[in-house]
Design a binder for these strands. Structure first.
Length: 558
RNA sequence: AGGGGUAUCGCCAAGUCGGUAAGGCACUAGACUUUGACUCUAGUAUGCGUAGGUUCGAGUCCUGCUACCCCUGCCA
């Protein structure tokens, strides 16, 4: 993977650590700790790539660790999917795959150490009471009546909790810090709760499960992580992260440091895991891999490439300021990546029939040789059938042209890309007055590649033979949120762009027939398209439009 | 008795010891063009949330103010 030198506040911190010899041998060790309760989205791509590349840049280590501390929300389906997505993205962890749940024994031991040091206690207050005792943002909390239990009794009770002798919600283990702390996270946070639930990995071994705030610093420390990178909302959890390690004998020397960065937001995009889940559950999306979703699997199915996402993540940078990146930025990087990687074919999405009136009577078809990608000669050429009856794009004809219209209109001549100049002589309409056919003549002198310079033409349009083509279904995908729609977590489902998927049927040149699932091509002047793996069938290719081509054409004044 | 963060072009974002505002996206103009694409060229902050101060010199230091984000799960 290409590595561009792009400094950010995290590399600055690491550089400083190296200068000060903070870690043995100046090692750098990062990790990506997804919770297996949903699919990864492009925000996770930013995070995982950040951690992975940091390790690469400093010749360090990178761990993939599933943060499976809450058995109620997690499923194995997700740990499979997450690994698949990460592999595809180009994030490599080798054999460094870990599960937080495999540290449960150590975590319990550390909890007992805190208890023995008088720094943790078993609280029998109810959930509601705990909340009430916690106070508010502006008022201090008050101590639980169980706060001053002796270590021995706490230890005995905790061991009973671990042994499953107490019912759920009957008691919790809490850190003993300061109920008056201005930081809510330091008001005796709960570190263990009782859950008589089967865990996907540890099965029925445990009756207690650690809370994130307690588990995370331990997971990091146990794995020897140096730089534990997370998102902004954990900033005021950091004091507790440090408190845990401060008070454990094992971590008096080297320990991980938590560093927070701003997570990715994209315009017109629904990003949160729970909102994505709502889209999936409501049926608006046809799965976690719906090509309109910003999930890694959705982007993959849509036709995005790993490189385009990597480059995008590299370019947007890493900082601490909340920000929302313009969707156009992401789109730029797919176009940029697909440009030289994909063949370019003719495909007409909204067909309008054209008859070449002077097409030779004695000829059925003329096979034209065209370059598959003019910018990449190595892609070679392929043949396209030119016949008497053709299809062009409806948009490429106007009976009454607007100003600066370079396409077809009565009396005007344009080039059919890769073929000939063609002039529109007659417009055929149906009873409703709709244009249903154009009668045109072509000039055999103007054959593509013949070097004809006799006259010039302002427009070049794409076309497909009406007699020899492959029918295609095309899904034009648009953002789920229309421009300038504020995301409203309450009722965003009602505000989903009704045109987020527009289905059309058209025709492609014969070459398209051979395209395989997830294979991509540029359809000349229409954009980049990718074969949808879910809807395509043997005899019916279905394409997702990855992204449109840019266009400076603006039909302004009539 | 609240605390923790962030503010540099329309959108991201560099700016490490104060030395006279990188880059990308978008946009505009032009060149090229058998994709109104691509490519190329040029342009776009006398300005760094704001008001003062220190200094020969401040985005960078000091003081005050303002705006926005996060925090009261036995979620992560």
């Amino acid at each position: 993977m290409e590595q561009k030198e792009r400094p950010n506040f995290i590399t600055n911190i690491i550089d400083e650590d190296i200068q000060n010899n903070v870690y043995t041998d100046n090692r750098v060790h990062t990790r990506f700790p997804p919770e297996p309760n949903g699919y990864l989205h492009i925000g996770h791509a930013k995070s995982s790539l950040l951690n992975y590349r940091l390790a690469q840049k400093y010749d360090g280590l990178f761990n993939l660790r599933f943060d499976d501390t809450n058995p109620i929300k997690e499923e194995v389906e997700f740990v499979e999917a997450i690994q698949k997505d990460l592999h595809w993205l180009g994030v490599e962890w080798g054999d460094r795959l870990f599960f937080a749940s495999s540290y449960f024994s150590e975590m319990v031991a550390y909890a007992e150490e805190l208890i023995q040091k008088g720094l943790a206690y078993v609280d029998e207050l109810s959930g509601e009471e705990i909340r009430a005792y916690r106070g508010t943002l502006t008022k201090p909390g008050k101590n639980s009546p169980y706060r001053d239990r002796m270590p021995d009794e706490n230890l005995k009770l905790f061991k009973e909790m671990v042994a499953g002798k107490h019912p759920e919600e009957s008691m919790v283990l809490r850190a003993k810090i300061d109920m008056a702390s201005p930081n809510m996270n330091m008001r005796d946070p709960v570190i263990y709760r009782i859950l008589h639930v089967e865990h996907p990995n540890t099965h029925e071994e445990w009756f207690v499960y650690p809370m994130y705030d307690f588990a995370h610093p331990l997971e990091d420390a146990l794995e020897g992580i140096t730089h534990s990178i997370c998102t902004l909302e954990f900033e005021d959890h950091r004091p507790f992260y440090d408190w845990v390690l401060d008070n454990l004998d094992d971590y008096q020397k080297e320990r991980p440091q938590q560093i927070e960065f701003a997570k990715l937001n994209l315009t017109q995009t629904i990003m949160g895991k729970r909102y994505l889940k709502q889209l999936v559950d409501s049926g608006i999306a046809d799965g976690w891999d719906d090509p309109r979703l910003p999930t890694i699997s959705g982007l993959r199915r849509r036709g995005y490439t790993p490189e385009s996402i990597q480059n995008f993540c590299e370019e947007i940078g890493v900082a601490k300021a909340n920000s929302t990146v313009d969707l156009g930025m992401l789109e730029h990087f797919v176009r940029d990546d697909l440009k030289l990687k994909t063949p370019r074919y003719n495909a007409v999405l909204n067909p309008l029939k054209v008859t070449i009136t002077n097409f030779p009577e004695d000829q059925e078809v003329e096979w034209l040789e065209v370059q598959t990608n003019q910018e990449v000669p190595e892609m070679g050429t392929h043949r396209v059938p030119f016949t008497k009856e053709l299809y062009i794009e409806k948009e490429d004809f106007m009976e009454v042209p607007v100003k600066k219209y370079f396409r077809l209109f009565p009396g005007n001549e344009v080039r059919l890309r890769g073929a000939y100049f063609v002039t529109c002589n007659e417009v055929v309409k149906n009873d409703e007055g709709e244009v249903i056919e154009l009668k045109c003549t072509y000039d055999p002198e103007t054959k593509s590649g013949s070097g004809f310079t006799g006259r010039k033409v302002k427009g070049t349009i794409h076309w497909v033979s009406a007699e020899n083509n492959v029918p295609i279904e095309v899904h034009l995908l648009n953002p789920l949120l229309e421009k300038d729609t504020e995301f409203d977590s309450e009722n965003f489902l009602e505000k989903i762009n009704p045109d987020s998927r527009v289905v059309t049927h058209g025709y492609g040149e014969p070459e398209i027939k051979n395209m395989q699932t997830l294979e991509k091509a540029q359809f000349i002047r229409n954009g980049y398209f990718s074969v949808d793996p879910k809807y395509s069938k043997e005899d019916q290719l279905v394409f997702n439009r990855v992204v449109e081509l840019k266009s400076s054409w603006r039909p302004t004044k009539k």
